[in-house]
């Protein structure tokens, strides 16, 4: 059975692209959440192996959502995704406990190698 991914992104386009990149891989998309609030509510239900989390979202942003999920589920594996590549944002994500940071745009190889690395940690 594939590793189950939860995509958290307010952009339908980005979620579509991540889904496309994960086709025919060991990963399957278990859920797509368009807000941090939805992700927080769904995490316990879905129990994904890994989360890809956009940073800039209306309402709770990705960093706040990641922090809230990790407070309740320290074992959660979260990969942050953003077009905003600031060193302080990367550090903040790392300090919160996110396992990796992917800067958009990324290739299929970038995505899969990052997910593989995080899953094998």
């Amino acid at each position: 059975m594939g590793k189950r991914i939860m995509i958290v992104d307010d952009s339908r386009a980005q979620a579509f692209q991540v889904k496309g990149l994960l086709e025919d891989t060991d990963y399957e998309v278990a859920a797509c959440c368009q807000t941090g609030e939805e992700a927080l509510a769904e995490y316990s239900v879905i129990q994904p192996d890994l989360i890809t989390m956009d940073i800039i979202m209306p309402g709770m942003d990705g960093l706040e959502t990641a922090q809230a999920i990790l407070e309740g589920h320290p074992e959660a594996k979260i990969v942050m995704i953003s077009s905003l590549d600031y060193e302080d944002t990367r550090k903040e994500a790392s300090d919160i406990g996110a396992k990796a940071f992917l800067n958009k745009p990324f290739t299929r190889d970038d995505l899969i190698s990052t997910l593989d690395r995080v899953m094998n940690e």
Binding site: S11, R12, A13, Q14, Q17, I56, S82, S83, L84, D85, Y86, K104, P105
Partner: peptide, 19 residues
């Protein structure tokens, strides 16, 4: 689709400009 994907594309453009 055109609206959603154009927004996502420009989001990436502006992210790189911000950097």
């Amino acid at each position: 689709d055109v609206e959603d994907f154009s927004k996502e594309y420009f989001n990436v453009v502006c992210g790189h400009i911000a950097a």
